[in-house]
């Protein structure tokens, strides 16, 4: 069984594009990243998976259950963290958490208290008085207190300070190690690169790449940085070149052997050949190029 599986998932808002032909497979127990710029269709995909909006075409299964069927069955096992957490006015944090658990027919007080302690969230505060970051923490506890099998997180760290972000990912990793699947939507690449095992990139409503994070990052190109004056004429497979008298840096897709033999003729002061970071790959996909 896949935790999430979509086939040709398409959503149009009238004539406006939401997502087009999205095919995703997230295995159980995976830590999956979903990357894309604003308006690419990340939230549309998530909202369709949660049954908030109806797909125009295609199908989707969440935890093996068709989202067009009884939505309450998958939702019972999903913890969803919205990008913008909004709650009912006048309620205290404790009441929101109790209400959320009550809607699930559960008593989650123990787990809620443990989570609030780790996130340093005061349960006696009123939600309207909380800062954006603290409201986010309430949403995190709501998404986690019922110990779901699948976490669907939409831009989870916006508003959280770095220490809290670390604590949050600590908790997520623990849940993941216990067997839960995590589906993390973000435009913060380092987050995906650091935490996820696989990822998909979405751009203008379509999935443009999917694979393991290493695969996506590697994708044949290497970032080469050379110190010293070299002449690169005649070397094939060079892109994104910037060269000065002091050195050169470029993306190289040719054979390593050819590069080394070519450089042997020059006085190379320094050399590094590295995987490009996801950011570079990402920019290529964003701008419509191919990495």
């Amino acid at each position: 069984m896949k935790a999430i599986e979509t086939k040709g998932l398409t959503k149009f808002y009238g004539k406006a594009r939401g997502i087009i032909d999205v095919n995703l497979e997230v295995a159980e127990g995976e830590f999956f990243g979903f990357i894309g710029p604003n308006g690419a269709g990340k939230s549309t995909t998530i909202r369709t998976l949660l049954g908030l909006i109806n797909a125009t075409e295609g199908s989707a299964n969440v935890l093996g259950l068709d989202i067009n069927g009884d939505k309450t069955k998958p939702l019972a096992k999903v913890g969803y963290l919205p990008s913008e957490a909004v709650f009912y006015r006048g309620m205290k944090v404790r009441e929101v958490l109790k209400f959320s658990a009550g809607l699930r027919g559960l008593d989650c007080r123990k787990e809620a208290e443990a989570l609030c302690e780790r996130l340093e969230l005061d349960m006696s505060r009123k939600v309207d008085e909380l800062s954006f970051g603290n409201r986010k923490k309430v949403a995190i506890v709501c998404a986690m207190q019922h110990k779901p099998d699948l976490y669907i997180l939409d831009e989870p760290t916006s508003g959280l300070d770095p220490l809290m972000q670390r604590e949050f990912f600590e908790i997520l990793k623990e849940k993941n190690e216990e067997g839960a699947t995590v589906f993390l939507s973000s435009h913060v690449l380092s987050e995906i690169q650091k935490n996820c095992s696989r990822a998909a990139i979405i751009r203008e409503g379509r999935i443009v790449a999917e694979g393991s994070v290493e695969e996506l990052a590697a994708s044949a190109a290497k970032r080469v940085v050379i110190g010293g004056k070299v002449d690169l004429a005649g070397l094939e497979g060079i892109r994104d070149l910037s060269a000065t008298d002091e050195g050169a840096t470029f993306l190289y897709t040719g054979k390593a052997d050819k590069l080394i033999k070519h450089l042997a003729a020059f006085d190379v002061a320094d050399l590094s050949i590295a995987e490009p970071d996801l950011e570079e790959i990402f920019m290529h996909y964003y701008q419509g190029g191919e990495a």
Binding site: L50, L52, C142
Partner: peptide, 14 residues
Amino acid sequence: KDHTAEFLLTHPVS
């Protein structure tokens, strides 16, 4: 209107 629909409807209540 108050954007609480997302909260409410992502709970397992039909």
